[in-house]
Design a protein around this nucleic acid. Structure first.
Lengths: 111, 111
DNA sequence: AATCGGCGCTATCAAAAACGTAGCATGGAT
DNA sequence: ATCCATGCTACGTTTTTGATAGCGCCGATT
C-alpha cells in the first residue's frame, strides 16, 4: 500500500552505486583517497597522514583501492591516485564543503 | 626532506572533514541517506531497502545520523532527511555519477 | 664491507563492530 | 478480542579493525 507506492517511485540503488557505497563504508577508505590528494605518498607517510590507522588495515584498503583502479603504486614514490581516483577526490571536495556547512548548522541549532 | 616538502604543501584534513569521513567509514551510513532520497521511510522499509542490514546496526546508524542532524524522525512516517541530509544527498549524487564512470573505466581496462 | 635507518609489509592477538535471529511491546485495524 | 505490522532490543557468533612487534630489503654513510 503506502509501501507499494514508494516502491513504484523508487529507482533502485544501482549496482555501481551500491558498490561505491560499500567501499565508502569501510573504515579509512575515503580518508586514504583524501590524504593522497596532494600527490604520491609512501606507505608510511600515508599511515602517518591518517593518524592512527594500523598497517594491516592500510594494506587491506590499498589492495581494495588498487583493485578498483582508484589508486596505483609507483615504484619509488609510493601510492598515488589514478584518473578515477582524482575524480573521486572531486566528489570528496563536495563532501568537504558539506562538512563545514553541517557544523555551522549544528552550532546554529544549539543557540 | 621529501616528506617535509609534502608537509609544507599539505593543508591538513580539517576537523569537520575528518568527522564526515569517519561517518562515511561506518557501514551502511551513506547507504541509509541514499535510500531516504525518495522521501520518508519507516524503520522496516529502510531495512528492506538496504537489503541485509541488521536492525541493531540500523538503529545505531539512525541514532548517529540523527545526532548529526542529517536525519529526523517523523511520528507516523518514519525517518526522513533534514535539510543537511538533503545536501548530503546531493553529494552522493556526485558519487553515483562517479560510480558509473568507474565501472566504464574498468571495462575499458579489461579489453 | 659493515652498519644503519627508513621502507613496505606480515604476524599475532585483543578489542570492537557488525551480523543473524528471535522476540517483546505498542498501536491501529478487523 | 484478535490479528498484524511496526519500532526496537537482546544475545551469541562472526567479521573487521586495532595495537604492537618485527622481518627482509635497499640505498646511503662511514
Amino acid at each position: 500500500m503506502a509501501q507499494r507506492v514508494q516502491n513504484l517511485r523508487r529507482a533502485p540503488t544501482s549496482v555501481p552505486m551500491a558498490s561505491a557505497l560499500a567501499l565508502s563504508g569501510r573504515r579509512w577508505a575515503f580518508r586514504i583517497v583524501w590524504e593522497l590528494r596532494v600527490g604520491p605518498l609512501s606507505f608510511r607517510a600515508l599511515q602517518a597522514a591518517c593518524g592512527t590507522i594500523s598497517p594491516s588495515v592500510l594494506q587491506h584498503r590499498l589492495h581494495g583501492l588498487r583493485d578498483r583502479g582508484i589508486v596505483e603504486r609507483i615504484p619509488r614514490l609510493g601510492y598515488r591516485l589514478t584518473a578515477s581516483g582524482e575524480r573521486l577526490f572531486q566528489v570528496l571536495t563536495a563532501l568537504d564543503k558539506w562538512s563545514v556547512c553541517l557544523v555551522k548548522d549544528s552550532l546554529q541549532r544549539d543557540k
